[in-house]
Design a protein around this nucleic acid. Structure first.
Lengths: 146, 146
DNA sequence: GTAATACCTAAACCTGACTTTAGGTCAAGG
DNA sequence: CCTTGACCTAAAGTCAGGTTTAGGTATTAC
C-alpha cells in the first residue's frame, strides 16, 4: 500500500494529477484510511494502463468507462475488447499519418541542408522530384501522396 | 487567387479557422483587396506545411515563427533547418512511444479475445509471459519494457 | 507548544486551439 | 428597394486536461 505522495514519486506525476484522476473516477475501488487514499498494486496497474490509453489518444471519460467495466467483472469482457480494438485501429491510422508527416520533415531537413551548403534555391527546386536522392525521393513521394 | 470560402472548401476547414490562422500570423504576406483576403498558391502551400507541422505536434506560435523566417529570406535557412531537425527527433520519439502503446493494445486485444472464448482468467494470467504465442509475447515484452 | 510536512477539499484559474456571437459592409438577384 | 449571401471585425465562449489557491486536519521534529 502506498500514499499519494509515493505514487506521485514512482510515476513522476504531481499529486494534483492523481487527485484529479481519482475525482474523474479512474480508480473505482480506491480505498481510504480515515480520509487518506491508500493506493494498492491494483491502482498502480491501473495507472500504467491509463498512461498507455492516454498515449493512445483516449479521453479521460472513456478511460473511466473502461475502469468501470473492469470493476464490473467478466460480463464486460466484450465491451472492453471492442474498445481496445477500436483504439488499436485508431492508433494504427494515427501512426501512419505521423509517418507521413515525418517523411515531410525528412525531406525538409534534406532540403535546408542543401541550401545551407550553398545550393541555389531555383536549381534545387528544379531537381524536384526527379533528381532527388533515392531515400529522399521516397520521403518526398510519401509526404506528398494524399 | 482564391477567396477564404474557396480555400476553406479545398482544405475542408471552416473559414473561422483560416481567419484564426491569419490572426495568429500564419500567412505573413497575405494580400487583401479592399479588406477581403486574397489567398494565392503561396498561402495554399503554407497551409499544407501548417497541416504537416500541426501533425508533428508543433504549436501555432512556433509555426508562426517558421512562417516569419520564410518571409525573411535565405538568411534564416539555418534556423529553419534546426527547427525541422528538432521536430524530426521529437516525432521519431513520439512514434516510438506510440508503437509501444500499440503493442500494449495488441496484447490487451489478444487477452480479451481469449477471455471471450471462455478461457479462465486465472489460467490465462498464469501463462504470462512464458506461455504466450510468439507475436503476442513480442508485443507484451515491448509494452512492458521501460 | 509550535513549526514543518504530508495529507485533504472545493473552487477558481490556466492554456491552446478553436468556435460562436453580435454587429457591420458590399454586390447581385427578384 | 430590399433581401440574401459572402465577406469583415472584435470579443466572448468552449473544451480538455490539468494546476493553483485557500483553507483545514493530523503527525512528527525540535
Amino acid at each position: 500500500m502506498y500514499t499519494i505522495g509515493q505514487v506521485a514519486e514512482m510515476f513522476g506525476l504531481p499529486t494534483s494529477t492523481l487527485r484529479y484522476y481519482d475525482k474523474q473516477g479512474l480508480f473505482p475501488g480506491l480505498e481510504r484510511a480515515s480520509g487518506i487514499r491508500r493506493f494498492s498494486d491494483k491502482e498502480l496497474e491501473a495507472l500504467r494502463v491509463i498512461e498507455c490509453l492516454k498515449k493512445a489518444g483516449m479521453e479521460i471519460k472513456d478511460i473511466r468507462l473502461f475502469m468501470e467495466w473492469c470493476a464490473e467483472g467478466p460480463s464486460t469482457y466484450p465491451q472492453r475488447k471492442a474498445m481496445f480494438e477500436e483504439r488499436k485501429a485508431h492508433m494504427e491510422s494515427e501512426i501512419a499519418k505521423m509517418n507521413r508527416a515525418l517523411d515531410m520533415l525528412k525531406f525538409k531537413c534534406w532540403y535546408y541542408e542543401q541550401l545551407n551548403q550553398g545550393d541555389n534555391e531555383a536549381e534545387l527546386k528544379a531537381m524536384i522530384p526527379d533528381g532527388l536522392p533515392k531515400e529522399i525521393k521516397r520521403a518526398y513521394e510519401n509526404a506528398h501522396t494524399r
